[in-house]
Amino acid sequence: MIRIGIILGSTRPNRNGPQVAQWVLDMASGRDDAEFELIDLRDHPLPHLDEPVAPMFGPSVHEHTRAWAERIAPFDGFVIVTPEYNHSAPGVLKNAIDHLFAQWADKAVGFVSYGAGGGVRAVEQLRLVCGALGMADVSHQVTISVLTDFENYTTFTPDDRHATALSMLLDQVVAWSRALAPLRQASTETTLVNS
């Protein structure tokens, strides 16, 4: 069974992200083509990237990085739920992504973003980052406005069109995760042979 991690990419106090991420999980849990699990970055506090060697060149020396790698490695794909801060993704999300390399490779990723402009600029940057890591970003995206999809800017009240967009996004993430499975298998076999 394909496993998809839903990454909640904000750790701010009073964040809106948990409502959006839970909505994604609730919608996804009705499917029978994959298993979905929420990954909250608050549960994985990472210092600013502190590994002496880039993740693509060697094993991690720090326990917090190894624990994060063990959390991410089993998943076949991801849905990243991200706000937009100052035309970009949150630093904590970028930092979490930068801590790893092989654990992201050959996996699909989709984006659910929120902000005054729907979070589209944050996702534009994340697509570049994920591409550099060998991830396949799907074309469908869910863009949520904090101006119209949150009552009093705090209570998430998604429009029905977002459910349709999310369903199409999940279709793509699951399909691409399945299609990329042979590449992940080949990578795992290479790692086992070289270790």
Rank of each mutant, 00 (worst) to 15 (best):
P18A: 03
P59M: 04
V146N: 11
A136P: 01
P13K: 12
N86S: 14
E63W: 06
S139K: 04
V193M: 07
A186K: 15
I80K: 00
A179W: 07
T155Q: 12
V146S: 08
D149H: 07
P83M: 08
R42C: 15
V193K: 10
T143I: 00
I6G: 09
A179K: 09
W104P: 00
Q22T: 14
T157C: 14
M27C: 07
G77E: 02
R161S: 11
A181K: 15
V61C: 08
N16V: 12
G9E: 00
P47A: 07
L38T: 04
E189Y: 05
A102I: 03
A181P: 04
D159K: 10
T188S: 11
G119Q: 06
E35F: 03
R184W: 12
Y85S: 07
S139H: 13
K94E: 12
A186F: 02
A175N: 03
D98N: 14
G119I: 08
N194D: 05
L183E: 07
P52I: 01
H140M: 11
T188Q: 12
G5K: 10
L183K: 05
S60F: 06
A165V: 00
G131M: 08
Q185T: 11
M168S: 08
L8H: 13
T143C: 11
K107H: 08
A69E: 02
N95R: 04
G5M: 14
G30I: 06
A122S: 14
L169R: 07
